[in-house]
Amino acid sequence: MAQHKVNYTQNGGLPVALTSIDKIVNWGRSNSIWALTYGLACCGIEMMASGASRYDFDRFGTIFRASPRQADVMIVAGTLTKKHAEFIKRLYDQMTEPKWVISMGSCANTGGMFNTYATVQGVDRIIPVDLYLPGCAPRPETLQYGVMLLQKKIRANKASRAQVAKRLM
């Protein structure tokens, strides 16, 4: 018998792995976190670096999508101005459930150094945030670690449970 053939003698003679619904669904969800391209400022450059070959987000199954309808996670990378606030809310509403938000960098977390009239003081005033990444700007490693923590968070949830939509209010 050639080496590459399936070894039918294991698993009771069948090419089968047993698992639970939760695990298989969460395995799929956590390993295909498609991100919405949301580079608003300099953090966007670090986000692009995370997606490029040196850091390679594709290994995590994280592929940037240009449409909110195809995206699972919104990585808010950069300063959110008050003029743009209504659009981030609209794009968040267009994403399909289940959806997550990563707030990347000081500006998205708290407004950062832009303590002025034109900047939203934290993106969590507009949309619910799952993960805050510190830094100005965070290194690509930070974003990678953030995505791994998000994977862990997704795996910790029961997939069979009816999804409760996250709402700020």
Binding site: A85, E86, T110, N115, T116, Y117, R125
Partner: peptide, 29 residues
């Protein structure tokens, strides 16, 4: 520099309406 009252509540008023001010709360400056 940090805006008047209109500026402080601009995005909240526009997206959620004035009744959301109490729930979301003032900006942490």
């Amino acid at each position: 520099l940090q805006g008047d009252e209109f500026a402080a509540w601009y995005e909240v008023d526009k997206i959620y309406g004035k009744e959301a001010r109490d729930i979301i709360g003032p900006e942490l400056r």
